[in-house]
Amino acid sequence: MLILSIDSSATAASAALTDDSKLIGEFFTNTDFTHSRTLAPMIESLLQVTDKKVSEIDAVAVSNGPGSFTGVRIGVAVAKGIAFPDDIPCMGVSTLESMAYNLTLTDCVVCAAMDARRNQVYNAMFRIQYGEVYRLCDDRAISLIDLKAEITEKYNDDRIILVGDGAQLALRELMDLPLNVELAPESLRYQRASSVALAARARIKAGEKPSAHSELLPSYLRLSQAERERKEREQKASE
């Protein structure tokens, strides 16, 4: 199954092509927010040098959040745009989950953290065992103080490895505690398309099917104002 994977959920952007057994090609840049201009040409170049056509792609996987509002929107919009003409099915993968796949080489607890500003991070915890990734909690926005309390209570016997652009923030909060905690090396610390591909491949192996591109949505872990107002209205109406 030929999968095109895309990530532009924060400052870096990347695209990867994988089949069932190998990474065929990957294009990664970290040039700050230029995704609206660079992501589509990156994918075009990737297809060109790997000698593949859009029509050969069986599924498009994209990290659909959490992350930067603009970045997540661009990634999802590009995925939909590529999928639309040939009705290619799509799969949204949690940015945090994809980063856990950076670290499948060693048994550990992965603390994926992305900077959500004002001493908060987008976070999820994963356990890596024999190369498999097990999710320990849902994606969430959490204050660094609450995260610290949870890690101290639940993971004080584990080797904890931090990934994501909030890893440094989390480390600063955790380093004075008697915990076995470390930063992932830089080459493995951030989200990238090849990890999105690995997460998508694992989900497909577990029986999940990519869905219609129209069902692909960003997942910000925040409600837009319109959504909140509608919720409030509905709540009022039901009272």
């Binding site: 700050d32 927010f33 930067s68 509002f69 603009t70 970045g71 500003r117 004002r118 910000y220 925040r222 409600l223 837009s224 104002q225 909140r228």
Partner: peptide, 30 residues
């Protein structure tokens, strides 16, 4: 509110240039 602010892309602009905010009363906490 903060969710509104996030969905303007405000946080994506920080550190990339000079940012000037009118009616900052509405977002003081953030």
């Amino acid at each position: 509110d903060e969710d509104d602010l996030y969905s303007t892309g405000f946080y994506d602009y920080l550190g990339r240039g000079l940012v000037i905010i009118e009616w900052s009363e509405n977002v003081l906490d953030y």
